[in-house]
């Protein structure tokens, strides 16, 4: 297992150097276990993702998970894309923060870079209320289409939109 960590750390250092050239706007951090944390502003998300996917010899082509984390203390919602290289030891997490106070917090969708992001981004939209520009089919995935609100937000329980009765009219296209 330590062999793997060593390989991961050396890949991480190479990745950091690569990003310094390919994505100089990104803040990178190498964690002790070899994960490269990459923080970018929303408008640079697609470029950073492409830089990660273009890393050689371990392109980060495998999106394991895209998670949304609600951080009301910073008035932001953080979207974390955890990517690995398959096969290979590289591991990185691309973190983008969006402003939570606006009506429609949004960031560009990364579906073109990692098609696996499709359902993950829909889930983040559904549960946290983050819009993904350029997503081919952004609609609720887990909750009912007529559901109001975004439950995974920390203030959902206190500030829940008032419930109204759902009738047939809601379903007319």
């Amino acid at each position: 297992m330590s062999g793997m960590t060593d390989r991961r750390l050396s890949a991480a250092r190479a990745l950091r150097d690569h990003l310094a050239r390919a994505a100089p706007y990104a803040e990178t951090d190498v964690r002790p276990d070899g994960e490269v944390v990459v923080r970018v502003p929303p408008d640079k998300a697609v470029a950073a993702a492409e830089a990660l996917a273009g890393f050689r010899p371990h392109p980060l082509n495998y999106l394991s998970c895209a998670s949304g984390v609600d951080r009301p203390d910073d008035d932001q919602i953080e979207v974390v894309y955890t990517v690995h290289s398959l096969p290979g030891p590289a591991k990185a997490s691309l973190r983008v923060r969006v402003d939570r106070k606006t009506e429609r917090p949004s960031l560009p969708s990364l579906v073109q870079v990692w098609p696996a992001a499709d359902y993950h981004e829909r889930e983040i939209y559904d549960l946290l209320g983050v819009w993904f520009e350029g997503h081919p089919d952004l609609r609720r995935i887990l909750l009912a289409e007529t559901f109001q609100g975004h439950p995974l937000r920390k203030d959902f329980v206190q500030n829940r939109p008032p419930r109204r009765r759902v009738t047939r009219e809601d379903y007319q296209p």
Partner: peptide, 21 residues
């Protein structure tokens, strides 16, 4: 397949965010 857990802690006794992959 790959079951992943993205766990975020804020130092408290309860998890801040558990994302299940």
């Amino acid at each position: 397949g790959e079951v992943g857990v993205y766990l975020v802690s804020d130092g408290g006794p309860k998890p801040y965010r558990v994302k299940w992959r």
